[in-house]
Design a protein around this nucleic acid. Sequence first.
DNA 1: TTTGAGCCTTGCAAAATCGAACGCAATTCC
DNA 2: GGAATTGCGTTCGATTTTGCAAGGCTCAAA
Lengths: 293, 293
Amino acid sequence: MDNWDEIKTAYHVARMGTVSGAADVLGVHHATVIRHIDALEGRLGVKLFQRHARGYTPTEAGDDLFRVAQATDDQFNQLSGRIKGRGKEVSGELVVTSLVSLAPRMAPVLTAFQQAHPEVIVRYLTGDRLFRLEYGEAHVAVRAGNAPDQPDNVVQPFVRASVGLYATRDYIARHGHPEDIASCTGHRFVSHDAADNRAPFHKWLRSQVREEDITFRSTDVRALEAAVLAGAGIGFVPVLEARANPDLVEIMTPRADWSAPLWLVTHVDLHRTNKVQAFLTFLKDKSKDWQVL
Amino acid sequence: MDNWDEIKTAYHVARMGTVSGAADVLGVHHATVIRHIDALEGRLGVKLFQRHARGYTPTEAGDDLFRVAQATDDQFNQLSGRIKGRGKEVSGELVVTSLVSLAPRMAPVLTAFQQAHPEVIVRYLTGDRLFRLEYGEAHVAVRAGNAPDQPDNVVQPFVRASVGLYATRDYIARHGHPEDIASCTGHRFVSHDAADNRAPFHKWLRSQVREEDITFRSTDVRALEAAVLAGAGIGFVPVLEARANPDLVEIMTPRADWSAPLWLVTHVDLHRTNKVQAFLTFLKDKSKDWQVL
DNA sequence: TTTGAGCCTTGCAAAATCGAACGCAATTCC
DNA sequence: GGAATTGCGTTCGATTTTGCAAGGCTCAAA
């Protein structure tokens, strides 16, 4: 039973009752139809039709095949409708991935998007490892740093992620407010544990501050932020979040080279679908005021 | 969605995860698999798989197709099993047709056959019109007269249907017992209404008896038999039935040329199936003592 | 970083399939 | 009763599909 097209041919013969009728419906020559039937019967070892001058009458086996094939035809038609409609409607899963640090800003947008499109199930993936668009792990990714240049990815610039150097009022009260970065020796800094972290503000800090002044280190951005908020020292916090927190004091004016560009990335296969386009439009609209610098 | 083989190909790609794996399973070349997928996606206008170096990952549409195609594959496999097994087992319908006059003898045989094969549903068709094997109207036909020579029919000789001339004792008491057919003038005869009836005993009677002596006529064999039994006159009754009825008196010794040969006829497409063969064997066995002359 | 294995793509030749035409049988309509 | 219609079956030439093999790619392990 390893030629589905022959089953389809037999189905139409059973439905029409004649080879010619089936050939017309199928858009092929009636010789082709006969060959398909003969091949199928030969392989099954059972006659599917009784041939007579008025056409083909299904045997019991032919009737059985007819019923199964009719159900199959229905299924395939429904499938076709679903698949063709899938590109047009905004439904199903929407898988978005980004850096963990963007979660506070992404989560409200995703929530609003889900409410705007109740058919959509949102999956927001953040984690240490990079979720890959090529493997279908995500539909949309927010990436930082240099523009990704994967060949199958559609990349467009997003906002710049601006960070500033902050400390709590409590910390300032205990250690004073440094005038500039050069006079920071002896201050306590909060920063990422990995020396090879490629974030531009991290590299800048490493170049300006003594190794031993970085007294709180973690590999988790959220832990670092929490540490700054707890008064552990001076550290980088996204400008937007810092401004919302009156307890934080800006140590120095944010530099342009601290900020890293963010990119919206989609897989080329999915980029044109309405679902992805709808989300990209939505996200760009909601993120208008994210741009700080 | 008009190429079921491409759906089957896509199904195996989704199942295996790689084009090569699917190609192996399908017994075709990698390139063929790729071409099928590309054609299917092109026609649907939607990507079914995301291609990457490690294989093909189904998109949502591909997943949907996979589920539908898997169900289809199951259905087809079950169908194949049923169809291939159908030739071997004795089940389903068994449609038999014969002349009405054979019903008294066929009915018990069919009943016994059904009891021997409880899976079988027996349909016994008798009627004025001939049920045609070519159109799949019956599996087995019992035909009388000259050997049928339809090209697609398998014909084998059956018993001879022997009839005799009988009248009731009551009729004999009233009209006397004619010595031979020549001295029957004035007697009352029961026979078929159609002058062109081709039954040999009917033609013989027409050639021996005056038209006006045939006083009871009908187009229905059962009516004629009932008329003879009711004492309407002298008429032909199957020997077997007449012998079972002590009220009937044989008018003259049955002639050999009254009897017509019966034929067992099956369509060539069905003749080899176990069901038909089982019934033919059964019928021949049960009809051993039908042969009278 | 390099190597190796697996996988997809592409151009060309072979094979299988398909389509057109003709022949034949049965039925229907006039 | 005869012509027209409908429909199946077969053969030969053309088209499509398929297989093959080389080339290039990505990923992962060493």
